[in-house]
């Protein structure tokens, strides 16, 4: 009881701080930050369309991209752990794509200098599918593919 009341208080306090910051023009609501979200890329249906939506021409298959984590068989499609590492020089970004999901692109990560070309997260998979790791390095696109079988779908469940 007390704990939840405390959280509620904390939450409202935090909100008003944000509100003040917004009023001060520090955070413009729905600012450039949110506008950066690449809608086209997230609505693309396959690897090639995603590459195009991100501004590339085509992607080359590469052996320097590793799936550090990616199950052969995922028991629960709602939570499929995927970790990707790129050994390609000047890797700027890594994206995770699930081919047979309604929209292929699941997540993309950009790495400023100093951050390792590594990303790990968990994604949903509607059915067994190829998972692509798309890497942007020095302006060019590379990809690697791994098949993940899903025994229980993660969408519409």
């Amino acid at each position: 009881m007390n704990a939840s009341r405390r959280n509620a208080l904390k939450a409202t306090g935090g909100a008003s701080v944000l509100g003040l910051a917004a009023a001060a023009g520090l955070f413009v609501p729905g600012s450039a930050f949110a506008a950066d979200w690449n809608k086209n890329a997230f609505e693309a249906k396959n690897l090639n369309d995603v590459v195009k939506a991100l501004g590339g021409a085509n992607a080359t298959e590469s052996k320097d991209i590793t799936f550090v984590t990616a199950p052969d068989i995922a028991e629960n499609g709602a939570v499929v752990p995927i970790a990707i590492q790129s050994k390609i020089a000047k890797t700027e970004a890594i994206a995770i794509l699930v081919e047979k999901n309604p929209n292929a692109l699941a997540a993309s990560f950009e790495f400023p200098a100093g951050t390792e070309a590594f990303a790990s997260t968990r994604v949903k998979m509607g059915q067994s599918s190829n998972v692509h790791a798309l890497v942007k390095a020095d302006g060019k696109y590379y990809y690697a593919t791994k098949e993940v079988k899903v025994t229980l779908g993660g969408c519409g469940g």
Binding site: A78, E110, F111
Partner: peptide, 22 residues
């Protein structure tokens, strides 16, 4: 800034994220 990410709805509920920087 050490990481910028854009996510779609296909990232799992209660998302987990791991990254490394030097």
């Amino acid at each position: 800034t050490v990481l910028n990410a854009q996510w779609g709805p296909a990232v799992s509920k209660n998302p987990f994220l791991e990254f490394r920087f030097s």
